[in-house]
Amino acid sequence: MESEDIIVSMGRYAIAYPPATLGCVGLGSCIGLVLYDKNTGMAGMAHIMLPEIKESQPKGNLTALIAHNNIKMINVIKRVMDEQKIQMYEIKNDLGNIRSHAGKINPDIMLIDSRVDVSPIDLMQELVSDFRNMRVILTNVTTDSDMISNFYNHGAYNVLFNPLTNTKIKIAIDSAARYKMLKYANVTINMMLSQMIAEGADRASIRAKIAGGGHMFQTIIDSDIANIGFNNVKAVKKYLGELGIPLIADSTGGSLGKTIKFKCGQTKLDIATQKWKSTI
């Protein structure tokens, strides 16, 4: 992977615009799903581990820290937090405040305006290394920012592009609250699609491509293990079908690990295995 690729790790998704490239490394039984919108150049990639979870409400009392300088959406944010029963704290969007309050509160979710007074990348690296489970949502990012991949690769959980809207906030907070459930196809496909639509994707133009869902240890015949990949493929196809998203190409099954790359703005999915490379 080159340094400007956004590497989507297990149980996560990421949405980006050109010039970013989205990728998943070493898909075995996991599925790499890309949803792309030819019109806006926007694409989302999810690294899916399991078929479905029934009960998907987040458990426990979550806390969130919102760092802003008079964000217009603060009332919306407060309302969403209230609905989700998340305890919220507000502070000014500068490094000093963020550091001291993050330390005191140790929030589960942090919302930071990317126009903070220091490099948001340095800040995120610091937060992510000090607070391993904190989900950091960056707001006010421009769609043509060539820093998108840097934000993701340095620890941002989610990136919200301008203009900030009620819906984007709701989805981002919901996703951060339910982050442990994003390993399940049913939760992540719905969440990623909702966020893409909130970001302005044209629902009818969205297409899907998938890869992975293999079985690496061919001598293991125990169906609990041997069918993991197959069950994942079945589930992803089922949910895409239910959502009416056309599946354009599919490189699934088999016993080779796959690394996939999708460059936002075009439609090809590059696949590399230890034996061959192809584009679907």
């Binding site: 581990m49 399991l50 690496m216 293991i220 690990g257």
Partner: peptide, 21 residues
């Protein structure tokens, strides 16, 4: 024992998938 030769992530992932449930 069962053997596979491939990218580390791909041969680990079924273990991680089962564990993560």
């Amino acid at each position: 024992p069962h053997m596979a030769a491939d990218m580390t992530q791909s041969i680990l992932d079924f273990i991680l998938i089962r564990f993560s449930e």
